[in-house]
Design a protein around this nucleic acid. Structure first.
Lengths: 205, 205, 205, 205
DNA sequence: ACGTAATCGAGACGGTACGTCCTGTCTTTAC
DNA sequence: GTAAAGACAGGACGTACCGTCTCGATTACGT
């Protein structure tokens, strides 16, 4: 790693910091991560961190963003119910198991104490997650599986809300029973009749 | 055998600490509350706090519990939808507006970084909230407005999950439109009615 | 072991405290002795200590006094030089080796920071030590080995001063060479002898 | 006033601490001086003190050393007795009256409880004082007023020991009578005969 | 014989200071 | 002009004792 730079900021330092922050959250937990610890772990001077980030959460938002860069594309199964179910399975895996999910939970928690972080999360992080959550619904709408005037954001809240609630608040596992119920709830939104909402292929293609 | 100080711990000190903690969270926010600040505000020695509580969150759990002691009884409107709607209005008021809601949000946030707090919350605090959330459903069940085999906890998660999600994660206001949708969703659980569209993979499992 | 008594203090408690204080000074050193530690060691309540003593040094003065109660009589060897030398040997043993000497050194040290203790030491402890230091001189005077008008206290200061100086300040061992020199110095005070070389500005004033 | 520096400590902070320590000992006495108080008085962070000193006595040794830097040269009166008497007058003034004498007494007292401090005093502070105390004797020896084989350190102990003893232990004032006796005692050490030891100019030049 | 009064062990209390840790700023030196 | 290094002021942390206090139990005197 080169020290000093006549031509702008050191990309090496930036990456070392983000990596160190991610690692430390995974290893010792958000609460015990300190800026000094990140600096030491990254082999970077504290001042370098303070020059480019305003707080440890600021670093973590960047780290989380970097992690999220590797976009996963939701496979198209051809039907709303199966698309949605696949997406929810992936969402649960992210929230409960993945390292970046741990960072997300820590940030969401910290946002309760830090309005500035809350603002930044809602401006930068959540829209990207929301966009992903909308994919199955938007696809369904384009297939005609949802009414044209359906309030997709409202539907998303109804579907992912209980999952976040369990993960962040109650700590209960997100069971298949819950996912089934949520998928069914969403699928009940039909273009017209209340007739046979559960026929997955009914309106497809 | 000497049983130590016969008057035991000072109730006055205990109450002063809980009150000071509550006040400070409301005034300056959880993040800026310190044990030293609580001690100073309460007119109590730090050691007295450390003798009876293990951390500032430990104090806040006690303070929250004390605040919750004054149980509010949900008025019985005679019908499930109206009962539920009244309860949800009250829930939103608690989460978004009240002082003890601020404490709850802070604790829920901190629990993301502190497994011990998470455990304590789930053991002591959440069951009480859950009990309240179940009231409209249990009443409805006893009136016959819900099927006998309805999974009430699952229904509760579906109804209150989106509300917590908006309050804790997205920060969007909980709109009447959302509440309407949630009430309608719950009310669709009918004993007879339009058969069992929910059965195939639904909540019944 | 409750010895509550309308008329008078518990002798058992008093002795336990003095013994505990002595032991603790010997075991862990004056600096690390605390009143709480003495109370615990003595099996006595703090309040009992505070009822009867004003500070830990107050306890130690009492403990030292109790230790000193067992008066040792200086054997009469029949001659000033041998009497004095025997006394100085004993003094050095007391200061350098004995447990009560350790207490004395601690008190003398603490008196540098505590005028009240200094006053008490000079009023109660030092006169007893001075009386002992005078014994060889007074005996010599009664034998006619010293001039009638000799200033015994001044001589005592000259003889024991260097010993205390080495023990308390320089930490150098008190050697036989020093003791020899001090005895010789004192013995030079002769009734007749080579007149009064000391007169010009000497001790006679 | 931030003087942070990759290569070394802040001299300003060091001096402020030593000055504050000296002042506080003079103002409120050693016993009531605290590290927090020194930090506050010096306008310095506690951590800065703990970074460079291990205890309050460590600070005071440095402060005492700094005070002693301004060496006073003992004027040469041309004769042993007058040289010595002048030196002893100065020594008494230092021990009884001066601010740095107060620091010395406090350190000597504290050394009774703190072996580490005792070691440091004996290694760093006392040799310098001893060197001063030897000056009149060494001068006398070079003048031939003392035997070539005189044990100067032993003589020093005999002369300054009683003075320290009175100042540190008995608290009695150091009288001219004592000083006279001490000077006479020292002057009695003659090169050869026991003849006229008090003739100041006898062996001079 | 019995109440009164002072003692006792116990330990909670409001405090002070400790020594450690981390924050965010600043300065120096190197590249 | 960025980087590493690290000293700085500040301040919260959790701990140890301080000296005071109240408690209930114990004991001996004086009525």
């Amino acid at each position: 790693m080169h020290r000093g730079n006549r031509h702008g900021r050191s990309e090496a330092a930036r990456e070392a910091v983000l990596q160190a922050a991610d690692d430390l959250v995974a290893e010792i937990g958000y609460a015990r991560v300190t800026i000094e610890g990140i600096a030491a772990r990254a082999g970077v001077a504290k001042q370098t961190i303070y020059r480019w980030w305003r707080s440890k959460t600021d670093i973590l938002v960047d780290a989380f963003t970097a992690d999220s860069a590797q976009e996963l594309t939701l496979p198209d199964t051809g039907a709303f119910r199966t698309d949605l179910r696949a997406h929810l399975d992936e969402l649960v895996r992210f929230l409960e198991v993945s390292d970046s999910g741990a960072v997300f939970r820590a940030l969401a928690g910290q946002a309760q104490h830090d309005p500035e972080l809350a603002t930044r999360l809602r401006a930068e992080v959540l829209p990207r997650l929301r966009a992903r959550d909308r994919v199955p619904f938007d696809r369904a709408a384009s297939r005609g599986e949802l009414p044209a005037d359906a309030d997709v954001d409202l539907l998303v809240d109804q579907v992912v809300g209980p999952i976040h609630f369990r993960v962040l608040v109650t700590g209960e596992p997100v069971t298949p029973a819950l996912l089934d119920a949520l998928v069914t709830l969403a699928a009940r939104q039909q273009p017209e009749a209340s007739a046979r909402p559960e026929q997955p292929g009914g309106a497809a293609t």
